[in-house]
């Protein structure tokens, strides 16, 4: 098991996450896709950190986790607020930007 496998896994996870965000309508699921993408990124960071024998990547991964945690808080709050006003968690219903 080489480091390349981790990178491939990271790519697969990122793709799954991206597909989830783009294809699913449920806001919660899409949100989970975002988390998956973030974690795939974390995996790559850690892998590269190992590869280069440096700690920069791991430090960066911690930052991503912190940001992700904050983002989850804000994101879930928004989703709950939307659900309360529209009785729906489908992101296609949130189309106010379209005239």
């Amino acid at each position: 098991m080489t480091l390349t496998h981790y990178l491939v896994l990271s790519g697969i996870l990122f793709s799954v996450g991206a597909a989830t965000v783009l294809l699913r309508r449920n806001a919660i699921i899409a949100f989970m896709g975002v988390e998956l993408m973030l974690n795939a990124t974390n995996l790559s960071l850690v892998t590269f950190s190992r590869m280069h024998g440096e700690l920069t990547g791991q430090v960066l991964a911690f930052f991503v986790m912190v940001v992700a945690a904050a983002e989850v808080v804000v994101g879930l709050a928004i989703i709950v607020a939307i659900f309360r006003t529209r009785r729906s968690a489908s992101i296609d219903d949130v189309n106010l930007l379209k005239s």
Binding site: V21, L22, I91, D92, N95, L97, K98
Partner: peptide
């Protein structure tokens, strides 16, 4: 191009 769907914008960004 401006469909109003968040997913479309996300896809464009990606």
């Amino acid at each position: 191009a401006q469909t109003g769907y968040v997913r479309t914008y996300a896809a464009t960004m990606l």
